[in-house]
Structures are given as C-alpha cells and as structure tokens.
Design a protein around this nucleic acid. Structure first.
Lengths: 131, 131
DNA sequence: GTTATTGCAAACAATTTGCACCCAC
DNA sequence: GTGGGTGCAAATTGTTTGCAATAAC
C-alpha cells in the first residue's frame, strides 16, 4: 500500500464509511455529509472516492444502473441480485477467499478485493413472470 | 426458464453474441449490426438486451464506468481489473461453481449466473504509482 | 384490424471536467 | 507566495422513455 497522504475530505469520507454498515453511493455520501453539517461538494466526493479506491482503502460495487456503491475494504459480503426488481440480498459466505490468496501469491496482480454477485430472479419475480 | 417468445431483434442480437468470443456493450452491438447491414435502433438494442437478460439468455457485467457488457450465458469467465488503467485480464478458473449449485438447491433464488471480479493494480500501474 | 415492436429524439442520471478561488504549508 | 484541494456549473456518457409509424398475426 502506497505511503498514504490523505486530504481532509478523504478522511471524512473514510470515517463516514467506517461508521456505516451499508454500502453508500457517492450521492448518499454527499447527502449524508450534508446532513451532518459537514458540507462537501459532490465533485470532491467523487475525487476523494477515486483516490481512496486507487490506494485500496475502500471497495466498490457497481450496480447495473451504473451507480457505484462504496464501503470500507474490510467487508467481504456478496449478493444475490434480482434482475427484475433489483432487490439485493446479502450472502454471508465467501467461496473465493482461498482462490484470491493463491492469485495474490502468483505476484501477477496486486489484489485489493473482489466482487462476487449472483444474478437471476427472486422467488417473487419468478412467480409473477410465469403468466 | 419461461416459455420463450422472442422478437426478431432479440434473435438477431442473440445470434451476434453467440458468434463472438468477446463481450459486447450495447453500443458495440448496435455498431456491429450496422456494419452487417442489419440496421437496428439503439433503443431497440437496449430493449432487446433487457428482455433477454430477464429470461436468463445472456450474461451482464457492468464496468465501473457504468457501461454494461453482454455475452451469451454459457461463458464462465472472470476477470482481474486494474482500478487505475482499467485493463481487464480474464481468469480461466471458477472457484464458485460448487457454491452456486448449492445456492441453487436452496430454492431461495432462481440463479442464472454469477459475476466474479478481482480489483487492484496491475504490475505496471503498481510500479508507476510508487513515486 | 388489433397489438406488440420499432425508430427517433428528447429526457435522464451518474459521473467527470474546466476553472477560479482558497487554504495549508 | 505557491501548489494542491475545493466548489460550482457545464459538459459528457450510457441508458431510458414518449410517441408516432410500422410490422406481425
């Protein structure tokens, strides 16, 4: 991890993400900070997120809408996402950890994290689509 | 899988995807069809992709740029993506297949496919970021 | 003939960028 | 005082939607 010299904005965002159990979009973060009286421009939010991402300090999951969700790097949570209604159900298990470690040891990449997501239909949408 | 009644557009797109080894964006598909003299409006491409997606006929991977890539469902290829330069290297192995089967058997979701992606820095970007 | 599908262009939403200002050192 | 960090507003990009024209059955 590159010697880290963070801006105030980056620190604020990192703190916010650390205090939240859910993943936040850039716009969520913007509003969350605003609500806390901790005003910060939206562009700055994006720039800070980008910098933090590049140093491996947080984890990104991009939805099919194109919106990206951010959370602290410690998390290792995966999801099942319904392609129809978009509901996203966390899956508390990770079949990839060993694999990732081997990948790391191969020295070919510096691996920060992985995303694993299952797609299909939730039982609700599957039933209603049958007609 | 729901009894499938496909439009001509859907068939054309499915055929195109089947004939390609790489994943295509909606815009790629649009241009590819155009090049083949097989004109189709961009909106129709998106609508067809959406329908095919919902019946589990193809697989979507959304990049951090918000752009989505589509390929036939058979594929089971994962990637390492460099957060800096965006280069995406295929990984020909899948540590998730068993897990997915168990998930399927739990009857909680109708699983079409999964995406697995590793993020970090490629050796190039890692080196150059060290200064 | 009726219904679903299509194309076009306008609308949308998330993100990025240009630029002037400002703060920290 | 200088350089990086910031806010604002405009620009960009992928995608979606309204609506009239068209094709399918």
């Amino acid at each position: 991890m590159k010697p880290t010299k963070r801006t105030r904005s980056q620190e604020r965002i990192l703190a916010l993400l650390g205090s939240q159990k859910r993943s936040l979009s850039a716009q969520d973060i913007y509003m969350e900070l605003q609500r806390a009286g901790d005003r910060m421009g939206l562009a700055t939010v994006y720039r800070a997120l980008d910098a933090l991402k590049l140093e491996g300090a947080l984890q990104v999951r991009t939805l099919e809408t194109g919106e990206s969700l951010y959370c602290s790097i410690e998390r290792d949570k995966h999801h099942f996402t319904c392609l129809q209604c978009g509901v996203s159900v966390p899956i508390h298990a990770c079949p990839v950890r060993d694999f990732e470690n081997r990948l790391r040891q191969s020295q070919k990449f510096k691996v920060f994290y992985h995303t694993l997501e299952f797609f299909g239909l939730c039982t609700n949408c599957d039933r209603s689509g049958e007609g």
